[in-house]
Design a protein around this nucleic acid. Sequence first.
RNA 1: GCGCAUGUGGCGUAAUUGGUAGCCGCACCAGACUUAGGAUCUGGCGGGGAAACCCGUGGGGGUUCGAGUCCCUCCAUGCGCACCA
Length: 980
Amino acid sequence: MEYNFRETEKNWQKYWADKKTFRAENNSSKPKYYVLDMFPYPSGAGLHVGHPLGYIASDIYARYKRLKGFNVLHPMGYDSFGLPAEQYAIQTGQHPAITTDANIARYREQLDKIGFSFDWDREVRTSDPNYYRWTQWIFIQLFNSWYNSETNKTESIDKLIQKFSSKNTEHHINGNTKKWNELNEKEKADVLMDYRIAYLGEAYVNWCPALGTVLANDEVKDGVSERGGYPVERKLMKQWSMRITAYADRLLNDLEKIDWSDSIKEAQRNWIGKSEGASLEFKIQNSDDTIEVFTTRPDTVFGISFLTLAPEHELAEKITTSEKKQEVEAYIAKARNRSERERQAEVNTVSGVFTGTYAIHPFTGEEIPVWVGDYVLAGYGTGAVMAVPAHDERDFRFASFYHLPIKQVIIPTGEHDFSKTSWDEKEGTLINSSFLDGLNVKDAIKKCIAEIEKRNLGKGKINYRLRDAVFGRQRYWGEPIPVYYKNGIAHTLPENKLPLHLPAIDKFLPTEEGEPPLARSDKWFWNEETQSVDKTGFPIETTTMPGWAGSSWYYLRYMDAHNKKEFASADALNYWQNVDLYIGGSEHATGHLLYVRFWTKALKDLGYIQVEEPAKKLINQGMIQGVSEKIYWQGKTLNPKDTVSISYHIGGNRIYLKNNMTIVLPKNEACESIFISADAIDYLDSENLSLINVPINLTQNSELELNEYKNFRNDLTRPIFICKNSYWFEGAWYNFDGNQIQVPSKFLTKPEVEKMSKSKWNVVNPDEVIEKYGADCLRLYEMFLGPLEQSKPWNTNGIAGVSGFIRKLWKLYHSNDSFYVSDDAPTQAELKTLHKTIKKVQEDIEKFSFNTSVSSFMICVNELTDLKCNKRAILEPLAIILSPYAPHIAEELWKLCGHEPSIAHAEFPAYNESYLVEDAFEYPVSVNGKTRFKINLPLQISKDEIEQRVLAAEEMQKWTNGSAPKKVIVVPGRIVNVVI
RNA sequence: GCGCAUGUGGCGUAAUUGGUAGCCGCACCAGACUUAGGAUCUGGCGGGGAAACCCGUGGGGGUUCGAGUCCCUCCAUGCGCACCA
């Protein structure tokens, strides 16, 4: 009886769903284990085989942990707000909720077929009002909080208000200094806005005109939007933002506490970009204004030859002299109008302009020219730098270009030519630097900061590259921000009136005035009297939250997904704590994974949760690439009269190729499009050939199905396919003399590893694989491909090996086509095979080495087949250890063995070391490190005896030639090495 | 430019963590069976050589009785960040 995977898999999937086999309990005496996959965004394209890779790995781990006696939480849901659904809505007018639901249904269908052990009762969707109600609630908590840098904690804004009011603190309002108690309501609100974690602030943001919205830094790659690749500009805008910068130090330091991959940690460190240095104030000549700079090299302060301001710097225009005004303004305007991308492309082009103004060197009193240059970034530090061309590459370039002085203040540790480059190393001895002379760089930095502070010129300072995260999006399909504006002051909605539902609108486009889509709603006001959203009242915020809002806390909602009173109950939060194992792609390194850590810290400070970090361990699965199949093509239409190129031409009914080769066509007819097999490309000059992708399902082991390809390419008329020794033309095979032949040849394609994408015709869908080979086979093969964390190409060709393994496994439990296991006692050899496998598989799972355990299963089944093993005592434990990987067939075999389902409730068998003990070992014997022969020796004998028996061995004589060896190394149970 | 990975047969990979390089598969080759098939089974399969042997884990050097594994150096590929003061 052949294994019917289609029926069996469907049955068990239904069983698991019906019996809720994988439901996690919030109250359990078992230890908890939380396995989480990164949220998928349900795109219209559905899943390809790369997507489930991480899900399969986490599912194996979750199932393994259950067998090991853990109460496992393994949920799944959807990050269902997002740009693509909205772009689609703009094109078609269909509400994004409809497309999103359809996409989710398709995802679910695909996921279900793979046999995951998700607890679907806990499914969440970020676009569900029951979910985003709590996203809005968290926003309100963050709005009502500030970061107390003294306690290093997020605290209630009320505490800050109390502090201001009790101390009657001074505040700067529009250039005036006022006491807190003298401020009016609006002024107080403005002051507080500078402290709130969720705040409305003016800042340069990434504006993407094509998408009509602002983007966070991590959503911009190479100056264009990550989604869609549209140009991005810098724009000064008032925006809702999240004060993630307050958490920079904690986000950085706590990386040491979590078991995440080095590459992710490193990416986060770079993104946070901590640098230590000093801020220093420069007085401006004949002015009350001062310029504050940030530098990591205060030691080079005596090497300053000019200051440079970013074009956006608030003083840039103000301090410019009247003679220079026109020039500077023109420069600033030009710099401002360039897109991020243009600016990045011109990284090596120097440009700047002198303001005509001088600053005073705080130590020497020298006059220092102040320049404006776009190599200085407005968003970093103070937007102004002290330029030390001798010791900073960028300043050097600028100074060289504009012939500004270059003052050396450090003696380099090696040879260095200051006329060519700067010496940027933090090494050397200070010169020409007054009180710093003679010090090395490190000491000079310390001493100089001390001096700066002593003289009150500035102070030691730490700066971060990390920017606050822009939180508002000028888009429709996101969580509405629960804020309304009363007399210009932002107020949050009452918590008990959440959720603030997305309003219905006529079009998913900005208004004619350029307001976000939500402004299209005529019912988007907060009526304080009726406490409801209404046609009149105070205007409600019209931007929506970004995609990362919902995903910044979803791991918490899974703990208590249906709670109507809280985002999750204290009990549930306390029981599940945080994620034990998180698996997902590395593309979220600086986006989601930083934001979720930030929200976790904020919620912890506010006392809502117990944990400081969302996930203890994180694994990034590698990307699965596609294997494209390409064919060589010479696409020009060729008539019998054409003489096309030097390497070949068609004349009469012949095609002339390189090296005097001739192909005779069957009739005196035109052919169009010459295709040439990958093993025959040297028949043509390469410049005549181009590679085109062919659908991979029309190939088998890099051989193209010619008839099918021709049908697929109905645009082709009379193509000729040239193979090594024959050709295919109009459905028949011919030799090069033009005689029809019966034996077909292989037309080979050229495989190439590329990203999986529709346009490359190389997408493999899990559904197709499952239809043909089954879900267990897909799961095993995905794991078998290679280490989880490595990127690797998917090639369906290899799946036959895994498919054969499943058949072989099934046969072990069958005799004469019917199920049969014997109750006889197993042999030593059988026990050894089983226990060796249990040990290996357990060790492999625990170190997430899933590919090697699949190999072990294959070895195990091969050995048991050779042993003709049909013992229950062997085959039952085998089914259990295999069940995390291939759950369907394992359940079926478990049932056939006479057990009550489900195998998920079984216990992972313990391996018994005593079965693995050997009494003899075949020693490899090396002579001078090279293996020469093998000798079988008992393991009990002593090192001396091993040495004697090896030296006495017949094969040894050839090498020793009778003389005594210099040295003999014996590693018992491993190796013997004889040094001659 | 900086950072992080990764380099092993035709391909995906493995190697008890310093101890027999190539396990397990794919592909390929040969054979068996046969209602010719993209099924199953058996055997072979890093390169060179008739063989003895020699060469071989990106290149070069080193440590060691012994290196895919450790150290130095160079090269290549992939990813991330990038005028961050």
